[in-house]
């Protein structure tokens, strides 16, 4: 019973983390048809930025409660700047090329940014545990829950609700879904596709950085965290269906619960289980749970 409860809570927390990193990836893919490998860099920069922020904050004599806000604000600012530079400076030049060529472009950018991290932060690891400690924990029966984990789940829920509301109930959001379905028509209706692209990419970048920032207190911020995230986020998004927000949510839940179950019941297959689930889903639904294969018209 306790194990089942632990699997559920751990799974939820992990799903929250996965959703936060996957939503930006799926948003950019949905609107721009770009699989953005640089998302891993956004995550890493967010995490490093957060670690720096926590460092600054810990040395200053500011109220502890605002530390978390300071951390994510700084990280998202990093995401904002990177997003604008990348979209305007580079991606703009390759729109219209093959999808796979654009993946290579984002992959090349990712390689470059990996070394930029070394140039800025060096090769050592950073710890940013302070916000997590400051948050404390609560006990439910025999189970200890970190308040920070609860906050993480809350952030994911808020993001999901916000995305749902923004896409379904705002003018801009509905415009966005128009672009998702038909770019040419959208342009014909006077939608500024260029602006939508820039905005989408920047929002995606900020979400990636946010993911890194909220995870920074829970992990050791070190080289190579970006690539793990890109592969994981891809698995989540592929299960749900690329470009679908609902898909990312369901994908994150499935992967989160399965991984938590593996950790508690069969730790040896922990890494395997995520990709195993992905392979199973894709065998049954080649384009994920929420995306239907388009029949070819001739």
């Amino acid at each position: 019973m306790l194990t089942a409860f632990a699997i559920l809570t751990d799974g939820l927390v992990y799903a929250a983390y996965l959703f936060i990193v996957a939503i930006g990836l799926t948003l950019i893919f949905g609107v721009m048809k770009i699989l953005n490998v640089t998302h891993g860099s956004f995550y890493a920069f967010g995490a490093y930025g957060a670690a720096t922020a926590v460092g600054i904050y810990a040395n200053a004599d500011w109220p502890a409660a605002l530390g978390f806000l300071f951390m994510i604000t700084l990280a998202m600012l990093v995401g904002l700047i990177m997003g604008i530079i990348l979209e305007r400076g580079l991606l703009r030049l390759v729109y219209g090329k093959d999808e796979v060529v654009i993946v290579l472009v984002t992959y090349a950018t990712f390689l470059i940014l990996e070394d930029v991290i070394v140039l800025i932060w060096g090769a050592q690891s950073y710890a940013a545990y302070q916000p997590m400690v400051a948050a404390g924990s609560i006990e439910i029966g025999d189970l200890v829950l970190s308040n920070y984990d609860i906050l993480l789940v809350a952030i994911a829920v808020v993001l999901a609700a916000l995305a749902y509301w923004a896409l379904k109930y705002t003018r801009q959001g509905r415009l966005l879904t128009t672009v998702i379905f038909d770019r040419e028509t959208a342009a014909a209706f006077g939608i500024n596709v260029t602006l939508v692209y820039t905005a989408t990419f920047v929002i995606g970048a900020m979400l990636g950085a946010l993911g890194g920032a909220v995870m920074a207190p829970k992990i050791s911020v070190t080289l190579g965290i970006g690539v793990e995230v890109i592969v994981l986020a891809f698995a989540v998004v592929a299960i749900g269906g690329m470009g679908s927000i609902e898909g990312a949510l369901i994908g994150a839940l499935i992967v989160g619960i399965c991984r938590a179950a593996a950790v508690h019941l069969a730790p040896q297959i922990e890494l395997f289980v995520i990709y195993g689930v992905m392979a199973l889903v894709l065998v049954a639904r080649p384009y994920g749970l929420f995306v239907r294969a388009q029949p070819r018209k001739i």
């Binding site: 580079l90 472009v105 992959y107 090349a108 950018t109 470059i112 990996e114 070394d115």
Partner: peptide, 20 residues
Amino acid sequence: PGLWQMVLGSVLLLTILFLP
């Protein structure tokens, strides 16, 4: 040392952009 990936990435970008 330490800049190898940056070299790789830059050359890859330049190749894609100018010598597809």
